[in-house]
Amino acid sequence: MLKIVGLNSYYGNIHVLKDVNIDISEGEIITLIGANGAGKTTTLMSISGLVPPRSGEIYFEGKPIQGMVPDKIVSLGICQVPEGRRIFPYLTVTENLDMGAFLRKDKRVVKNDMEHIFDLFPLLAERRRQAGGTLSGGEQQMLAISRALMARPRLLFLDEPSLGLAPLVIKQIFEIITKINKESNTTIFLVEQNANLALKTAHRGYVMENGRITLSDSAENLFSNEAVKKAYLGL
C-alpha cells in the first residue's frame, strides 16, 4: 500500500533520514521503533509532505506522492495523529472533529460518523462544546485519534500515542488502535518509543537508528531479538 524507497530528508543542512526503505501492506499494523531523535517523526512528516524529502520515492498504491502538498496527500487517505496530539486549543471538540472531516463533502455521512465517534468515546460527547485545550491529556489523545478518523483514512499514522499518558489510558488507547485496524481494516503505521507495547500491538516492525532502518522483521521476531531486547525493551 505504501512503499518508501531510498528516502533522504533534511532539516536545513542536517541529514536526518538516510536511505530509508519501508513497505506497508493493506490492513497491517506496522510499527517503527527507535530512540529519541532517531528520525521517526521526520519519517512521518516526510510522507505527509510537511518535510519534503530531498531524494527517494514514496508510492501510495503505486502512485508517487513525494513532492505533493500536504492537503493533497490527506485527500488520498493518509492521515496523521501527530506527536503531542496537536488539538486546536480554542476550537470546541465538535469543531476539532469538523476540521478532521475538512476535505469531505458528504455532510450527512460526516454527521453520522461524528455520532459514531461520540458513541465510541462518551467522554468526548459530554464535552462536545468545550474547547479542546481544556481536555485532559488522555481525552485529547482520544480527540486527536477521532479527528483523524473523521477523514476516513485508509492509512493512519500515529506518532507516540502513549506519550505522557497514564498506564490505564495507554492501555485503552492501544485497544482502540487494534479495534480501528480490525473493524474498518484501516492500515496503521505506529511510531512509538514504548517498544514493548508497540511490538505487542503490531504485526511487523522496523527499528530506526540515527536516521537509518537497521532491522525489520515480524513483531514476534523483533520481540525476541537480543539486540532489540537490550536496546529498547530493557530486558
Partner: peptide
C-alpha cells in the same frame, strides 16, 4: 462557516491545519 473555522484552525496551529487537509 467552513472557511472561518479553517481560519481559526490555521491561526492556532498551522502545521496541524495542513495535516487535516486545509489548504493553508
Amino acid at each position: 462557516t467552513k472557511i472561518g473555522k479553517a481560519m481559526r484552525a490555521t491561526a492556532q496551529d498551522r502545521d496541524m491545519a495542513m495535516l487535516v487537509g486545509i489548504d493553508v
